[in-house]
């Protein structure tokens, strides 16, 4: 059986920070291929390059060498504006550090990606409120990030990532600040998105419990892929 065209493909991708003595190989030659509608968990020790890989997948960062292909298109050939349009229309990103706009209400934060998609104000507000409801924050729409707990901020960040119904959901430790119950709710939501809307999910996590929701687990060590196993084989 020939594999379908992968949605995301890394070919010998490296990312180098600093120079000379302080040179860091955040990614040291990664080959990777993820198909549409997959649910992938990325694990690995701290500093192993997980966030770096996610940022490159999300077109927020560019490789030092190697090639990143999205839907078979080498992204190094794309302009800055094309990268932006790819982010705008294809990708929802949940940052490890949330990255919400300060002094801006939860619902306005969630609306923001829709503003740049040019959606009308009324529809935007509706969808933002729905997304907030899905992450269990109905009552907190008008609160600003400083008025929300860490877990609540994380859920606003998730709502902002899913409000656009992206083709790919990238989540960097989406449950890092959540308790077991909230984590389960979020993972049920993500699983449903993956199952019902065929959204490709790539998620970084340290917790095996959370990784267990995924159908495939990629393990990073020292900027390299150490193992890559489908969950059916794990079980």
């Amino acid at each position: 059986m020939t594999a379908p065209q992968p949605l995301i493909e890394f070919r010998a991708v490296t990312k180098v920070y600093g120079m000379g003595e302080a040179l860091v190989h955040a990614l040291a030659g990664v080959d990777l291929s993820i198909a549409e509608s997959e649910f992938v968990a990325i694990m690995g020790p701290s500093g192993s390059g997980k966030s770096t890989a996610m940022n490159i997948i999300g077109c927020l960062d560019t490789p030092s060498s190697g090639e990143y292909l999205f839907q078979g298109i080498p992204t190094s050939h794309l302009s800055r504006a094309q990268h932006t349009l790819l982010r705008r229309h294809m990708i929802g990103f949940v940052f490890q550090g949330f990255n919400l706009l300060p002094r801006t209400s939860a619902v306005e934060n969630v609306e923001l990606p829709l503003v740049y998609r040019g959606m009308a104000a009324g529809e935007r507000r509706d969808r933002a409120l729905k997304a907030l409801a899905r992450v269990g924050l109905e009552g907190r729409a008008s609160h600003t990030p400083s008025e929300l707990s860490g877990g609540q901020q994380q859920r606003v960040a998730i709502a902002r990532a899913i409000v656009t119904d992206p083709a790919v959901l990238l989540a960097d430790e989406p449950t890092g600040n959540l308790d077991t119950k909230a984590s389960q709710e979020i993972m049920d939501l993500v699983t449903a998105l993956n199952r019902d809307q065929r959204i490709t999910v790539i998620m970084v996590t340290h917790e095996p419990d959370i990784a267990a929701y995924a159908s495939r687990v990629i393990r990073f060590v020292d900027g390299k892929v150490e193992s890559d196993v489908a969950r059916t084989e794990v079980a």
């Binding site: 999300g58 927020l60 800055r80 504006a81 932006t84 349009l85 982010r87 705008r88 229309h89 990103f93 940052f95 990255n99 919400l100 706009l101 300060p102 923001l112 990606p113 740049y116 998609r117 902002r160």
Partner: peptide, 16 residues
């Protein structure tokens, strides 16, 4: 603060 704000806006799909 504004640089971070710009980063956020760019990250979620705003053109430069």
């Amino acid at each position: 603060e504004r640089t971070r704000e710009i980063g956020i806006r760019l990250a979620i799909g705003a053109l430069e």
